[in-house]
């Protein structure tokens, strides 16, 4: 469900389908693994159609741990409804959310 690619020396993690407790945890561990060798990762939500609060909690936890380790996490390419979920919980202010992948890779 998770596809990882290198783009111009930066890591992009492509998420697909549904982000729930199980896939969220998987995602968190994968990215923390990446952070053992890298300082930056972008999460592309382009393929994400569903997300629930348990999945969201895992992503918050991922952000918390990356902050602690001084790693940078960028989110991008969210559909309007997924973005609405971030906005509803105020988390659109907590995460760096970019419209496009290129903006996230800056």
């Amino acid at each position: 469900m998770i596809d990882i690619q290198e783009k111009n020396g930066k890591t992009v993690v492509y998420l697909k389908g549904e982000i729930n407790a199980q896939t969220g945890l998987e995602l968190k561990n994968k990215v923390l693994e990446i952070f053992k060798t890298k300082n930056f990762a972008a999460l592309s939500f382009k393929g994400v159609v569903y997300m629930n609060s348990s999945g969201l909690r895992e992503i918050i936890d991922l952000l918390k741990q990356s902050r602690r380790d001084k790693k940078e996490l960028a989110l991008c390419e969210m559909s309007k409804d997924i973005r609405d979920m971030f906005a509803f919980t105020g988390l659109d202010k907590v995460f760096k959310i970019h419209d496009s992948e290129s903006a996230a890779l800056g």
Binding site: R83, F88, G90, D92
Partner: peptide
């Protein structure tokens, strides 16, 4: 009134 993010 429902909270929403910014559109670029």
């Amino acid at each position: 009134m429902i909270n929403a993010g910014t559109i670029k």
